[in-house]
């Protein structure tokens, strides 16, 4: 069993399963803050999936996408929390 097979048939299914779990919380979450946290975690795990895929496909170009995605996740969380606090103060 080579490394590529191991990564493709063992590691990738585990991460996909955890993406499904996080998505359950994203759908279920009782409040908006729960959903924001789930979204943040979804994008963070997405960065991991991109790193793993660049390992399998043997091309380092995908890591550029990972940098941008990590940036966007942080900006999204900050914007959402700012908006929630503002909305709470207004009414």
């Amino acid at each position: 069993m080579t490394v590529d097979d191991y990564l493709f048939y063992v590691i990738m299914p585990i991460i996909s399963l955890s993406l499904i779990f996080i998505f359950i919380r994203f759908l279920k979450g009782p409040s908006v803050a729960d959903r924001v946290v789930a979204l943040d975690l979804l994008i963070t795990v997405g960065v991991g999936v991109i790193g793993l895929f660049s390992l399998i496909a043997d091309s380092a170009l995908f890591l550029d996408v990972a940098i941008i995605l990590a940036l966007i996740a942080f900006l999204g969380t900050v914007a959402f929390s700012f908006y929630l606090e503002k909305r709470n103060r207004d009414d």
Binding site: Y6, I11, I15, L17, I24, L41
Partner: peptide
């Protein structure tokens, strides 16, 4: 193999925890 297994286990724990 060791590093990716460790990473996958940590991510799985985080996702079970969030549920």
């Amino acid at each position: 193999m060791v590093l990716s297994t460790l990473g996958a286990i940590f991510i799985l724990i985080a996702s079970i925890g969030i549920v």
